[in-house]
Amino acid sequence: MMKKRITHSVKLTCQTLEVDGKRVAMAVEGEPFLTSLYHAASIEYPKFFKMDLLCKVGFIASEYLLNAEGKERFLPADDRAVLLFNRNSSWNADTTFQQTIDNPEEFYPSPAVFVYTLPNIVTGEIAIRNKYHGESDFILLPEMSEAAMDQAIDRAFLDPATTSVLAGWVEAVSEDDFEAFLTITEGC
């Protein structure tokens, strides 16, 4: 196992947001939690509103993580990999899309929903937003496994071009059932 260290972390659920172990926000009634976090961080990225739930969860978690890192944002980088994991893939977008084609008399497949029926769109959204050109993977696991995620991070560091990895678990089953646990891991 290679030497590496976690420098920053974010834990997001439908109720709370923790950055580097400190609670920084809690959901309140009225505005959707992810949208309130978007506004609270003064993010200007209208594409956020077009994203499916899984992308929104991964995107918001990554924004707070990268802001915590404190480095200048949006500089092109070849040395950062993005590795995300979950169990249910793009289930939420899949079922939403299915609803657009269930009724033969109302058969209007939504292109905007269809583009999100792959989980690796999340890694792509994060990479595009931040101009990361390194490795990008979304891996499905039977269950959350820190050991399996750690092995994948180690494999990313086998590429000598990789000096850091944005990685973690991003799951979005419904508006009331989502979570993300993301870290930045630096090679030593």
Binding site: P46, E106, Y108, P109, S110, P111, A112, V115
Partner: peptide, 17 residues
């Protein structure tokens, strides 16, 4: 408005529907 190619597809569906 800054729409993209996916938005066009969605507009085509909108006009049909």
């Amino acid at each position: 408005l800054g729409l993209d190619s996916i938005d066009v597809l969605e507009l085509i569906v909108l006009l049909d529907r």
